[in-house]
Design a binder for these strands. Structure first.
Length: 207
DNA sequence: GCGACGATCATCT
DNA sequence: GATGATCGTCGCG
């Protein structure tokens, strides 16, 4: 038998997403690689920034207090699906549904370090001068990866959107936890450190 | 039916 | 750092 010199990339398994602690999953998604295959073109990048949203106790979550609407229904699905919604009328947001069916936790993907299909991402974003901007922010990365609300409910076990573990190990001192971005709420959940990003990574949406 | 409001981004100054 | 773009969704009654 021949030994592998590097850890082979392998898709995250279903159990990864069934963890009931979305905060833990948000942290553990850092360093993983997310891919999309849209119009037969594969694009992807390393996840460098995430945010956890924990329903129903999290005032910042769409599912706060058990709220259930047409828009957020996907949050209640079993972990391992994609929850997409539109923000500010323009921007698509990519979330990973987590926890068992009936719970409503999710992780927002906020920034990627582009790895695959970079030229297509430049075209989709009309950004040709600075690859650090390609997937800088949740709306930007969706545009770069060709993802929109029509991908709501797509399974990460399928061949449209999936996440791989490349064996990257991040220690706690390489990860920054900080308050979440853009929430217009008051109370303790406003400043709870549920945003995670890789320290000094130039591809995050903001320091 | 309608008014208000975003888990943002690009383009200014 | 400030501002305008832009529209789906929610909640009201």
């Amino acid at each position: 038998m021949e030994e592998e010199s590097v850890t082979p990339a392998r898709r995250l398994e279903r159990s990864f997403y069934l963890n009931t602690n979305a905060v833990e999953i948000a942290r553990n998604l850092l360093g993983k690689v997310i891919y999309s295959s849209v119009d037969k073109i594969i694009t992807g990048g390393v996840i460098v920034e995430t945010e956890a949203y924990k329903g129903p106790e999290d005032v910042g979550s769409h599912s706060y207090n058990g709220k259930r609407t047409v828009r957020n229904e996907m949050m209640y699905a079993e972990g391992g699906l994609v929850y997409m919604y539109i923000c500010y009328g323009i921007h698509n947001m990519l979330n990973i549904v987590t926890g068992p069916e009936g719970s409503s936790h999710a992780v927002l993907i906020r920034a990627l370090e582009p790895v695959t299909g970079i030229d297509v991402m430049r075209q989709r974003r009309s950004v040709f001068d600075n690859d650090k901007r390609l997937c800088k922010g949740p709306g930007a990365l969706c545009k770069a990866m060709g993802l929109s609300k029509k991908h709501n409910g797509v399974s990460l076990a399928g061949d449209t959107v999936w996440i791989e573990d490349r064996g990257t190990v991040l220690t706690d001192d390489e990860i920054i936890a900080s308050p979440r971005v853009g929430l217009n709420i008051t109370g303790p959940y406003r400043d709870i450190p549920w945003r995670f990003y890789i320290k000094r990574n130039p591809y995050i949406s903001r320091p």
